[in-house]
Design a protein around this nucleic acid. Structure first.
Length: 311
DNA sequence: AAAGCTACCCGCCAAT
DNA sequence: TGATTGGCGGGTAGCT
């Protein structure tokens, strides 16, 4: 992970946290995360940092992360660009976060590729580098060797995506839990993952959408498998391999998302919400709600209500 | 809150 | 031969 004067602190710390917490099933750590900079200390907006590794270490990295810069007008040191460029040339994987795409673009590594960056900077990036196809509407763009991601929190998605391609979905799901990935993305992996071409092409993409559309039904593993055209055993395996969860857990998370949405906008009883989400009873809803959201349905409604009250 | 019971999950193995 | 699938069974999480 590169550091430099004017680095965006969150973009720097997120890869450290995510990759640093990854564990294989046997407990070992697949990633050795190092922060590298030209000089031993760098200044970020709110803090000063003492950085353990120099840029020379970049030549040993398999993956190089380029965090965002606070000021797009500030010139990027040549030695930093040189380190990135040589990493690209020897085939290392290079990923930019947020405005880090501007740094990466200056090395020429993005020329002719699709890329993304913070949406506020998308136009500027396209203006400075006309040969880059800038897409501001995605969380990240994976070109294989070169990866770019959008604003701050998309760094989580980028890192988890890389962990998933390296280590598989189960390991990625574990680390997502460890860093307390927001429920929206974690439980609702439909939105997060259906966008992902690799997964969308597999059989699960359509099954997940079918499930989402029939959440209120009593979905048994059997029924889902029949609809998916595979055995229950294979379906379970698919969930573990591609989503890192079990069918039942995934459905529960999807139902809770639906429940939250209903609680925010509809003034009906918890019992009714439970029925509409496919939970057998309000008790079951409360149990899952506590486990996934951390509160009770009514407390959640009190905090997040934004519908029209109907007497 | 307790208890019985269903169905889920996953390791294992034979078959494809 | 290696990869994938589907069935079996036991241990149990979760539902009634």
């Amino acid at each position: 992970v590169l550091a430099f004067d004017g680095v965006v602190l969150g973009d720097l710390s997120t890869p450290c946290e995510v990759f640093g917490r990854v564990r294989r099933p046997d407990g070992s750590r697949p990633y050795d995360v190092r922060v590298c900079s030209a000089r031993p200390t760098v200044a970020s907006r709110h803090v000063g940092l003492r950085v353990p590794e120099r840029l020379g270490f970049v030549s040993r990295a398999q993956t190089v992360v380029v965090p965002g810069i606070e000021d797009l007008q500030h010139p990027v040191p040549g030695e930093l660009l040189a380190a990135i460029r040589s990493a690209v040339n020897r085939g290392a994987r290079v990923a930019s976060v947020c405005s880090g795409a501007f740094v990466l673009a200056q090395t020429g590594a993005l020329d002719g590729l699709r890329a993304t960056t913070h949406w506020m900077g998308a136009d500027e990036l396209a203006r400075r580098h006309p040969s880059i196809a800038v897409d501001p509407n995605v969380l990240y763009v994976d070109n294989g060797q070169i990866v770019t991601s959008a604003g701050a929190t998309a760094a989580f998605d980028l890192c988890l995506h890389l962990v998933r391609t390296d280590m598989g979905a189960a390991v990625a799901a574990d680390v997502a839990r460890a860093v307390v990935m927001p429920l929206e993305r974690m439980g609702g992996q439909a939105q997060f993952i259906v966008r992902d071409v690799a997964v969308e092409q597999t059989s699960l993409g359509s099954v997940l959408m079918w499930i989402e559309a029939h959440l209120d039904r009593d979905l048994s593993l059997h029924e889902m498998a029949r609809h998916a055209g595979m055995s229950t055993r294979t379906l379970s395996r698919r969930f573990r391999d591609q989503l890192g969860t079990t069918p039942a857990q995934w459905i529960a998370a999807a139902r809770i998302r639906r429940a939250r949405s209903l609680l925010e906008t509809m003034d009906t009883s918890v019992e009714d919400v439970a029925t509409r989400c496919g939970f057998g009873s309000a008790t079951v809803l409360r149990q899952h709600f506590a486990a996934l959201v951390g509160t009770t349905p009514l407390a959640y409604r009190r905090a997040f209500w934004h519908g029209a009250r109907t007497p």
